[in-house]
Each structure stands twice: as structure tokens, then as C-alpha cells.
């Protein structure tokens, strides 16, 4: 890491700095892109939980494909949509690591739907950061499964028409019905308050893994002002005015909440018990 070239003047206090888990480089993201905010939140949580040296990140294919340059942890770059499968391979071999995927909505909700559903179905102890910007950003603004009805993209000229292109896919609602999911939440990266809630959700999604409760997934409603053809400020407002009504914010599943165990299924064994031991290859009691 680059060393600081200045001395902090005495009597002053650092109130804001780069998290240890981010590298000291300029990202390639467009000005105003919320990918940068999401990276920072993930890195802050990794620092706060003191798991940087145990963390293994799985970068996906999308605008965040270069995430491996930005997180200062061990990283694997996965094929489009396959991050949860790659993460499964790592976590099964190294249960002591803390494995997270960072995936866009094309990656997770189109080409990778099978991989995310089945990682949740198996109750893999993984943390999934899911960036829903209602578009294929990297390839130039094509329609995603998450694109809103009527939303104009390069492959839905005139707006997405449900008769031909169907309806937005709600991943949190889908994943939260699976018994293997421990924590599922959706938050928006559109205001300081919602960003604070997003960070709490990310922390919980990591804690679910640390406690071996199963899959933790946080969907972050994000902006892509470039492909939405708006100013960054308008894009943040559009999240709140257009996306939130279709993608309601909140916690869809939380293993720590009273009744959560009962509300989920009788088939899932108490987490952290014999299941976890078996995962680690120890003799199950």
C-alpha cells in the first residue's frame, strides 16, 4: 500500500479515510456511479468485522468485473453468472475463509439465476452483494430482467413491454422463500439515510456467514446514470421515484428475528450445529 506522504497536524482527528480493504487506486467507474459506494460499504464492513485476512471475493462479469483491483483481499474472477458456484467451491475447501460475491443484475438475475437460487437452496455460507441498476451497464445499456416496465434501453426501444419482454424480476422475494437463505434484504444507494441502512444490511449478510446460518444476500438498488441518460443526481432520485415502488425496500428474511426459525422450515437443522461441523469435515456429533 502506498505510504502517506503527509503528517497529520497535531490536534486534528481523522474522521474519514479509505477503508483498509480497498486498494489505493482510481476506479474505472463513471462519475456518479454507485458501484463505488457499494465497494466502500463492503470494505468498511470487512474492516469493522476484522476479516480482511480471511476474506475471498468473487468478482463477476459486468461493470464491476475489475472489482479484483479494488478490494485488497484475495480475489477470483468468475465467468458471467457463475460467481455463486465459484464461491461454493472456495468455501467448501476453505470453510475458515469469508467468501463474498459481487454481482450485477444481468449477472445474477439473468445468466446466473440457476447458480444463485441453488447456492441459496444449499444454504451455502456465502455473502452475496447484488447490484440492481435495472440495466446491463457494461455492454452498453441493454435490457436486464430487472428493467422496469416502460423503461427505455437499447434493446427495449420505446420502453420494456411486458407482452414481449415480461416483468421485472424480484430476486429478494424469490430467494427469501428458500430455507437455505439466512438473511435477505433490499436497500437503496440513493441517500445518506438509505446508504446507512444498506451498510447495516451488508454487515448482517456477513454475520450470517460468520455464524454459519446460510446464505446472506443484499440487493442494492443502484444507479447507472450513463445508460439511464440522466445526470447522477437525477439518477439517484429516479431510484426513489421509479425503482423503489417496484422493488420495495426492507428485510425479507433475518435469522436473528424472533420466530424466524419457526417461520422458516422444519427441515433446516439449527445452524452452526452438526451441519456446520460436517461442512468443515469434522466428525458430526
Amino acid at each position: 500500500m502506498t505510504s502517506r506522504t503527509w503528517e497529520r497536524p497535531s490536534g486534528t482527528e481523522i474522521v474519514y479515510e479509505r477503508p483498509r480493504s480497498l486498494t489505493d487506486v482510481v476506479t474505472h467507474y463513471c462519475p456518479g456511479c454507485t458501484h463505488g459506494i457499494a465497494h466502500r460499504l463492503v470494505a468498511e464492513v470487512i474492516d469493522e468485522l476484522d476479516i480482511r485476512e480471511r476474506a475471498v471475493g468473487i468478482a463477476s462479469v459486468g461493470c464491476s468485473v475489475l472489482a479484483y483491483k479494488y478490494f485488497d483481499v484475495d480475489m477470483l474472477q468468475a465467468a458471467h453468472g457463475r460467481a455463486p458456484a465459484v464461491a461454493t467451491g472456495v468455501k467448501r475447501v476453505r470453510p475458515e475463509t469469508v467468501v463474498f460475491t459481487y454481482q450485477g443484475d444481468g449477472d445474477l438475475a439473468a445468466i446466473g439465476t440457476a447458480e444463485i437460487v441453488h447456492a441459496a437452496m444449499r444454504g451455502e455460507n456465502l455473502t452475496v452483494i447484488f447490484i440492481n441498476n435495472a440495466i446491463f451497464g457494461m455492454t452498453g445499456g441493454q435490457m436486464a430482467p430487472t428493467t422496469l416496465v416502460g423503461q427505455e434501453t437499447t434493446t427495449s426501444p420505446g420502453g420494456r413491454r411486458p407482452q414481449r419482454a415480461g416483468y421485472p424480476i424480484r430476486i429478494c422475494e424469490m430467494i427469501s422463500v428458500l430455507d437455505g437463505a439466512a438473511y435477505v434484504a433490499r436497500q437503496a444507494l440513493s441517500s445518506p439515510q438509505s446508504i446507512a441502512r444498506a451498510k447495516k444490511a451488508i454487515r448482517k449478510a456477513f454475520e450470517a456467514q460468520l455464524e454459519e446460518r446460510g446464505l446472506g444476500l443484499v440487493e442494492l438498488l443502484s444507479s447507472c446514470s450513463v445508460n439511464w441518460k440522466m445526470s447522477p443526481g437525477d439518477a439517484l432520485r429516479w431510484i426513489e421515484t421509479h425503482m423503489v415502488p417496484v422493488y420495495p425496500l426492507g428485510v425479507f428474511k433475518d435469522w436473528t428475528e424472533a420466530g424466524a426459525e419457526a417461520a422458516s422450515s422444519p427441515v433446516r437443522p439449527a445452524a452452526g450445529g452438526s451441519d456446520g461441523a460436517e461442512r468443515r469435515g469434522e466428525a458430526a456429533g
Binding site: 457463475r82 458456484a85 465459484v86 467448501r92 476453505r94 440457476a114 447458480e115 469435515g281
Partner: peptide, 24 residues
């Protein structure tokens, strides 16, 4: 002390192998 995973597809299985091999 090993693990067997029945994957959801061959695509997933080979990508799990990529992860497991990558983890050493």
C-alpha cells in the same frame, strides 16, 4: 474429511471446480 456437492448443472459443477482448485 472431504466434500461431495451435487451441483445444479454441469456449468455450476465446473465453476465449483474452478473455485475449489483456485482455493488450492
Amino acid at each position: 474429511g472431504g466434500q461431495f456437492v451435487q451441483a445444479e448443472s454441469e456449468v455450476a459443477a465446473i465453476n465449483m471446480l474452478y473455485g475449489a482448485g483456485g482455493a488450492g
